[in-house]
């Protein structure tokens, strides 16, 4: 696995304007094509999406059909109805794209999507996704562990939490323009959650570039937490000392906590979390503790009262 050293990173952290403009011409070809055109030197595997390796962390459950995954989304930046994002998300321009990594790190800086695709080999990870509203999907993500990226920027000893911020472009996102929610969307993880091998930065699904409605060009996937923790279209990753406030904590503090781990024993104040509808199935099924990832993640919460820290 390739983890860039910090010196390498600062050299290439800021991509010159000229190259950005040049890239605009490739917009319609998509990120994958763009990346392969601009990075012909990364040997045969020019298309990182095609060369993704299968991960042993994948579930073997039946996949949710692609058209369901891309037509039933909660992405308030494009409207509050599930069908809104598929209709409205095309207006977001995702190339060029950079993520700013800042805060309690030794080497703060920017990293472009092209660099990300070049530096971090992609894996296919088939994960369950459980929405807090009581439905679920099984999605074959393409991505790489968040820890790989964080380590490259060298978090310091004060980095106890990671804050994530989504893109803020009302002119490209109709839900933001209509102010249906307080934007930009913000999320957070504890540093050990962020460093956990299951925590993924995803750039694609079903073998292709991430569709805009699913959080293009890059999003978080934390499979043992409710879906809203898996923030989409990330532009800022900030390492911080104090637990950051998330958008949903700010909006409805008594209903959404910082942790938001999938937990059938702790109901949402307004509805039960014991069951879920797997999209495509007729009847509901039982929701599993930590969305079925208890073996891998339960230890993170040893000694915590998950009723209090919901």
């Amino acid at each position: 696995m390739l983890i860039k050293t910090s010196t390498e990173l600062s050299d290439s952290a800021v991509t010159p304007e000229a190259i950005y403009l040049q890239r605009r011409q490739f917009l319609q070809l998509g990120i994958a094509a763009t990346a392969s055109l601009l990075a012909p030197n990364i040997f045969a595997a020019a298309n990182p999406f095609a060369s993704a390796t299968k991960s042993p962390l994948s579930t073997t459950e039946d996949l949710t059909p692609l058209d369901s995954v891309t037509s039933y989304n909660n992405f308030y930046e494009f409207g509050v109805e599930k069908t809104d994002p598929a209709q409205n998300a095309h207006t977001l321009i995702t190339t060029p794209w950079t993520i700013n990594v800042e805060g309690e790190v030794e080497k703060p800086g920017m990293i472009s999507m092209d660099e990300i695709l070049k530096n971090y080999p992609l894996e296919e990870r088939i994960y369950r996704l459980r929405c807090v509203e009581g439905w679920s999907m099984v999605i074959p993500w393409l991505g790489f562990p968040l820890s790989h990226l964080l380590k490259a920027f060298k978090p310091n000893s004060r980095a106890k939490y990671v804050q994530f911020i989504s893109v803020d472009r009302p002119e490209q996102m109709i839900g933001q323009k209509q102010k249906v929610f307080e934007f930009p969307y913000q999320e957070g993880l504890r540093i050990d959650e962020a460093m956990h091998p299951l925590t993924l930065l995803s750039v694609g699904l079903y073998g292709k570039v991430l569709p805009n409605q699913n959080g293009a060009p890059i999003r978080l996937v934390v499979p043992w937490k409710y879906g809203f923790k898996s923030i989409k279209s990330i532009v800022t990753i900030r390492l911080v000392e104090k637990q950051p406030l998330t958008s949903w904590q700010k909006a409805v503090p008594n209903e959404y906590g910082f942790y938001s781990n999938v937990n059938p024993e702790v109901d949402h104040p307004r509805w039960s979390q014991k069951k879920e509808r797997r999209i495509g199935e007729f009847f509901k099924r039982k929701t599993l503790m930590f969305n079925g990832y208890a073996d891998q993640v339960a230890a993170l919460y040893n000694g915590m009262d998950l009723r209090k820290d919901y």
């Binding site: 058209d67 369901s68 037509s71 039933y72 599930k82 069908t83 439905w135 509808r277 999209i279």
Partner: peptide
């Protein structure tokens, strides 16, 4: 006909 979208029950 499967024309009620991803969550036909809802």
């Amino acid at each position: 006909m499967g024309q009620l979208g991803a969550n036909p029950i809802e």
